[in-house]
Design a protein around this nucleic acid. Structure first.
Lengths: 170, 170
DNA sequence: TTGGAAAGTCAACATCGCTGACGTAAAATT
DNA sequence: AATTTTACGTCAGCGATGTTGACTTTCCAA
């Protein structure tokens, strides 16, 4: 139960990366890396009195300008009450604009203001800087593998969201 | 500012993975993948009325049995007050044992009880199952790249913790 | 023997998830 | 035209998890 005994017996080296010990190291790597991943934005957000929830909202509004609240809800995977609290703060502070939908007036189309874009840029640059350094040090092939494994770790629903994001490029 | 214009000019394809767009995709992949990464444990923890903080404590106590509270604090990167609340719940519920240190009686050596080990196994198996599936689908070379990039993303302090963990194997 | 480290505790607070309930407006359906 | 559904906003309350600050107890070591 503690160790994956198949790996050695079944096909030797080829499956060594599937031992329980290797999997545990992967789990721990995710834990520590995610801490690094959020560290820089967290420091910036603290300056403005925001949290990670605000960052995520800002990120995806910037990513898909004009998107509706419901879309954002699905992307973020939180309740509307939770998102509303965050969104209200951003709108009140003038970082996000909420426009009544043209086609369907029940909908609200979300956009970043200039001020919102400025914060997005600050957050994004810090995060990209770390990613760039990690990518550069690991090299293109490692990056490709990194992306493959991450994608395989997502739930199907999350993977759909992830790919939908790819199409939403301007 | 919006796009990394060097990449094409400087050395063509070789640096395409460092465009801002590629970096953004990496950032989003981390976000969505981490959600998948924690989804299974979260469901299990909810059954017992625990959260992620309990999971992390259980994981690292299992990983380094007999470790002190201070060690755990450094690994988890939280305050002792925050950890204490979690640890107290686990001790009260009989999942963790806190033994007075033999050499230094101020210290507390933390161990999982049989019940604690049972929950650890349940959580760990769920998480490893997902990792195993992701690793298998991506292949050994991808896994190697995955690990390289994750490690490069950590803060130096976190990387030290990460490697220290490697040595702590029984 | 006294200073300080390690651990525990209490209080208060903030972020950010959640559920439940309710209201309004607009679109869709019957 | 009346009803139902959808989209959004909001209030109230709760829970997990992080924080700072202050204080006590224990006990090693200079």
């Amino acid at each position: 139960m503690a160790d994956n005994r198949h790996s050695q017996a079944q096909s030797g080296e080829a499956l060594l990366f599937l031992t329980d010990e290797q999997l545990r190291k992967g789990i721990e790597a995710m834990f520590f890396a995610y801490r690094g991943f959020t560290a820089d934005p967290d420091r910036i957000l603290a300056k403005y009195g925001y949290g990670r929830a605000h960052h995520r909202a800002i990120h995806f509004i910037n990513r898909s300008p004009g998107s509706t609240v419901n879309n954002l809800l699905a992307t973020l995977g939180v309740t509307k009450q939770s998102l509303n609290r965050v969104l209200r703060a951003l709108v009140d502070d003038g970082l996000v604009e909420s426009r009544v939908g043209a086609r369907d007036r029940r909908e609200r189309n979300l956009h970043l203001t200039d001020e919102g874009r400025a914060l997005e840029a600050e957050l994004s640059e810090a995060q990209r800087k770390r990613m760039r350094a990690a990518y550069r040090s690991a090299g293109p092939e490692a990056v490709s593998g990194f992306r493959e494994v991450l994608e395989a770790m997502m739930d199907p629903e999350q993977r759909r969201q992830f790919h939908r994001m790819r199409e939403a490029n301007t």
